[in-house]
Design a protein around this nucleic acid. Structure first.
Lengths: 121, 121
DNA sequence: CTGATCTACAACCATTTGGTTGTACGATAC
DNA sequence: GTATCGTACAACCAAATGGTTGTAGATCAG
């Protein structure tokens, strides 16, 4: 019974909480997209948005805690880069949901097939 | 320039905000997994968790607003079912990030290849 | 050295979130 | 009918979020 392998009580998965929480903001998603494609300093990012430097700094911190982004000091700047692992972890969970969904669809298909068999001689 | 096609200012995408926000809670992820695999009434779901009925009711409402779940009245019960579309929308965004990432990796690969060519006669 | 830049972090504020309890109402069971 | 079940919704509360301003420490340019 594959279904019951799912967490019976929702084990508190702080990691996924932070991951999806981090993605639940348009500014942060934009930052992820940008630093995935290239490198930005924190102030370089801050220049892109209509909010204070400190606000962007906080967004980057949220992304960092969620393992979606890494920071590396270079001179007096802090370079922000995309972290592939975090994205893949999120994708992986959604893929699992997708699998459960397909298994369910297949099961429904089987039941219909059984009904057909019963109807046949 | 594929990179610059990305939202210059983060267009406020309420839909994705709600989607990821909804997934940023372990209880709600568990609900999604369960109703994706089968059918549950709201009270049926509430029986699974160590919190009040009203709390679960709110979680279901959040999932419904995020298009991850649908409710349908049946007798005096409200049946909750998984909504495939919402999940696919989230997967789609992460897939886009994945594509950007791969393009970047390919670009870096090209640069290295160019360097190699320059080094050769 | 002086001044400008980039960053970190604290303090504060308004709003949202995740939970509670309590009340009310339609549908079902007896 | 009455009692019970499943639901909806309001009011309330503590904590987290998303933003601000202000202050202070490194690092670089002149």
């Amino acid at each position: 019974m594959v279904v019951d392998q799912l967490s019976p009580a929702p084990e508190k998965d702080l990691e996924l909480d932070r991951l999806f929480q981090a993605l639940a903001d348009a500014t942060r998603r934009d930052i992820v997209a940008r630093v995935t494609a290239g490198e930005y300093s924190v102030s370089g990012l801050a220049a892109l948005y209509a909010m204070s430097f400190a606000a962007v700094q906080k967004h980057v911190a949220v992304l960092e805690r969620a393992s979606l982004v890494t920071k590396e000091k270079r001179g007096r700047e802090q370079i922000v880069r995309g972290n592939h692992d975090g994205l893949q972890k999120a994708r992986h969970l959604l893929d699992e949901f997708e699998m459960i969904w397909r298994q369910r669809a297949a099961r429904i298909g089987d039941i219909l097939a059984e009904d057909d068999e019963r109807d046949l001689p």
